[in-house]
Nucleic acid binder design. Structure first.
Lengths: 185, 185
DNA sequence: ACCTTAAAGCACATTCATTGCGTCTGGTGG
DNA sequence: CCACCAGACGCAATGAATGTGCTTTAAGGT
């Protein structure tokens, strides 16, 4: 139930919004350990039952919030060359995702529905961004790799390190990944 | 607290074993949704307080069990060539990890301690296996990529697809990844 | 303005998480 | 060989969270 069919502007929309912001605030304040449904309900000015009815359980709600917060809010900047665009995007991506908050949201998104519903959405967001960059490069006349190639050799390694080896993250590595990715054209 | 210092053969060891198998069985039977500490305790013939004392909370316990079950039980087979070894290992890896059970264990491992304690352990397991294969190939006189390269361009894409895009998994793709990885020598 | 219907509130029963305290196991030193 | 001691376990109790029937509210259409 991540994609809510709420009458826009109605009471449901207000509740959804206040619950989402309540989750976000409480996560920032106390972390996830002590986060409970009644707590969220109190902060949002709602009763717990409302949350249980709309989202089912805490995990689904967290996953829902996570996906919304992981949605990119802007299209990638245009720096005039594919290499620059990819590098800048990758650095920005790493910045956002490798923070404790970012990692937490990714993990929450992974818990949502067992097959890649919410996680798949996140992946789709990244794919869209990449696609924009690649399309722009193609229009410029540059030779470009496939979106899939970029995902395999740039996005995947970044995410892998973020999730499994938070220590091994540095800018040099990112640049190297961009370079090898561009070899696959 | 994943690495328990239990007196071997004593009561503590029995408790640890029965709790671990209880978790494994209950996960297989009812999935993770309905899994609770008292439930595990009942199945294991233990009281909940024991579990709380030893593991702290459900997540830590799940993470502990996950890491133990994700530990490879055998060294990679030797097929006489790096390409064959890597391909076979990748297919085996994919088989184990892409099952619903495997995915669930990976996600549990990711939840353990916030910085990559348990997840890092899993990554280290994979690195060990890869390292064995690469060392063998070097000893044969083959030209081999770095372990890091294999992780970035083979392991990471596999895991990424397993976690974020369970649909996009096929053998062809795996072979392709092995091929491009071997280009990076 | 009314009517319909989906969503939110309320109250309550059930189950879970968590801790204090006494008991027992099993390794250790005399 | 035996008594001792530290840590681990079981029991029981409490406070909180989960989840559900029933009632009430308000959004959107007629």
């Amino acid at each position: 139930m991540s994609r809510q069919m709420v009458r826009p502007g109605g009471r449901g929309a207000r509740v959804q919004a206040s619950v989402h912001t309540a989750v976000h605030e409480l996560l920032a304040e106390n972390g996830r350990e002590t986060l409970t449904v009644p707590q969220i309900a109190r902060r949002a000015g709602v009763t717990p039952s409302t949350i249980y009815r709309r989202w089912g359980d805490l995990q689904a709600l967290l996953s829902d919030v996570a996906v919304e917060r992981l949605r990119p809010d802007t299209t990638p900047d245009d720096h005039g060359s594919l290499a620059d665009d990819l590098t800048t995007w990758a650095e920005h991506f790493l910045d956002e995702m490798s923070s404790p908050t970012g990692r937490a949201y990714i993990r929450d998104a992974l818990l949502g529905d067992p097959d890649g519903g919410n996680a798949g959405q996140c992946s789709a967001y990244a794919a869209e961004q990449i696609d924009t960059i690649l399309t722009r490069a193609t229009r410029r006349g540059e030779k470009t790799p496939d979106t899939e190639t970029v995902i395999d050799h740039l996005v995947a390694p970044l995410i892998y390190r973020i999730l499994f080896r938070p220590d091994g993250l540095d800018t040099t590595h990112t640049h190297q990944l961009v370079a090898t990715t561009l070899d696959h054209t």
